[in-house]
Design a protein around this nucleic acid. Sequence first.
RNA 1: GGGCGCGUAGCUCAAUCGGAUAGAGCAUCAGCCUUCUAAGCUGAGGGUUGCAGGUUCGAUUCCUGCCGCGCCUACCA
Length: 661
Amino acid sequence: MYRELQSRLTARMREYLKQQYEVDLPNIGVDQPPQVQMGEYALTFSFELAKKLRKAPRKIAEEIVAGIGPIEGFEKLEVAGAGYINARVDRAVMARDILKSGGSVAASGEKILVEHTSINPNKAAHIGHLRNAILGDTFVRMLRTAGCHVDIQNYIDNTGVQVADVVVGFLYLEKKSKSNVEKLIADPAARGNRPIDFYCWDLYAQVSGWYEQSPENKAKRLKTLHDIEQGDNEAAEIGELISTAVLRRHLETMQRLSIYYDFLPRESEILSLHFWDLAFEQLKKKGVLYLETEGKNKGCWVMKRAGTKATEVVAGEDAGPDEDAKVIVRSNGTVTYVGKDIAYHLWKFGLLGRDFGYRKFFRYSESAVFPQGHDVWISAKTGESEHPHFGGVQAIYNVIDSRQSDPQNNVIEALRLLGYTKQAEHYTHFSYEMVALTPRCAVELGYEVSEEDQQRAYIEVSGRKGFGVKADDLLDALIASAQREVDSRHPELAEDERRGIAEQIAIGALRYFMLKFTKNSVIAFDFKEALSFEGETGPYCQYAVVRGSNIFRKAGLEPEEVLAGDIDFSATAQDDIWELWLTASKLGNTVDQAIATTEPAYVAKYAFQLAQMFNNFYHRHHILTEQDERRKRFLLASAGIARRELVRALSVMGITAPSVM
RNA sequence: GGGCGCGUAGCUCAAUCGGAUAGAGCAUCAGCCUUCUAAGCUGAGGGUUGCAGGUUCGAUUCCUGCCGCGCCUACCA
């Protein structure tokens, strides 16, 4: 709602400026005045125009305010300060519109692919992966709120060195055969009742140490990796077993947080279906790759990096080889990771000329989210005959941490050099910073922390060293902590009900925690902060919703019927209450902005702000004891609007509020 | 060396295209439960926005140079 009035105001201003001063301002900046009593919108262009028009900003503002005449939906314009133009809306009219449409957002209809999670299937998910998955899932929810059609993909690197490392662990450290590993996966007792991904977590860390012991050990790694890539041998079969079992665990872990997927493309199919061969042909034909004949990259097919000036040498012949070029095909003929990624992204845009086979892999059972249940498909060499179609999308968002920005840029550059400039422009590396541990947290967890690391602000998580906090462990800790609170507050409730509430609170706390930081801020993880349910947290927002619900429950009314009823809006003149309405009208605006900047934190901040404002309102105005019936109705409507929009904002973040807290 | 990012209150973080008095939470201190739930509310203290210049009516925001920190920069994947 907020957005519609804003565009009406700026459109009228632009028109008037053209007509009156013969200036065209395509982007008229709009702010909000510092206090709501000063108006809902603030325009600052008078300052900008001062020089051009040779008039004082305040004078310009005064002329415009005097001359422009009425604008629909607005009560009046005022000059403020040195030349601001503040616009006041007609509050009663706007309130009526908010009641109807609230923070609804415009529909778009584009087909978009979001790739997120993409955890190597060789160990348990940790807090860094949680940040990725929660950012990705929330971004998907934002896009869907905006009316986009989104496919969610989770890329599985099941033939990489990380999987090979765990296979080495099974084969050489634990001396296990394929059937031993099968038993380990099938029989919980065989792995000491630890989940298989936890088991692999420990094994993976051991293997890293074992490599250090001798060069022979290390040689096993390369051999195993090659075996896995080749296929048809025990190492490959163990790799397949383990990566599939661990992947299943990852899906279960993410499902606990209401994070879902549509398709799981795997590296094994990118290899076996020879995606690279097709990409290689295109890259050679268009001259994107060239065979280096000199220097350190002699014998490799390389590509120039984005931003480097390869054409700089026009006259000078003796420039030598571009040592900075990115190797795509090694001198032994094997393709690098970036090469495979280029092929994969050609497929995503429907530019490769080949498709995956598709097989059903995992099913989300019937629920509120999926009334008919939902299948997760996985890539296969030969798939099922009936399957949905993935790929061939208009835009891509890859949720990958900032450390991958270099390879990501290489892929984008390859698309551009291939002539797919439109696709390159619609390829977004949704980059975010890592989650690290504070030294204190590392010590708490029982890790040895060096003198040097003690002095740092944070220490990078390392799966290779087994250094980190597992996602399931964190979630369990959050649930346990929430459970204690719920048990003491609501002993009257049944046990499974209390458990359900504790889970909702834990998920709210975790998802909000991962979203409240802006993307390029490193999260220095600390249990104390992450386990907090007070202040700027998910439970704070959930609590505001519960309070809102309680009012209606005690009043014996449904929020919807109050909002649909007859309401006297004269009390919107009261600034503190009006501010609540105004904030409630801005969800659509916030989501738009969050999409445009790929910054989910805006939504988190918004939800907190709205919750805070509601809590404020809650204390200041006691609704059920209000004697004036008209005012009581209005206050109920105010609570209803705030609650409705807060519920929407939380649902964009994948958070639901429990019935009681 | 080059690329990307960061530096804001004791701590953790916000601040829309450059906009009005730089805001939250935590922590500290002082208050508020006979009320629709205190996972809450009110108030107080706490700032030379790393440093030095520049652009501008206006700079936390843009530019330049320093200082400090992190990540990336392999024919590993």
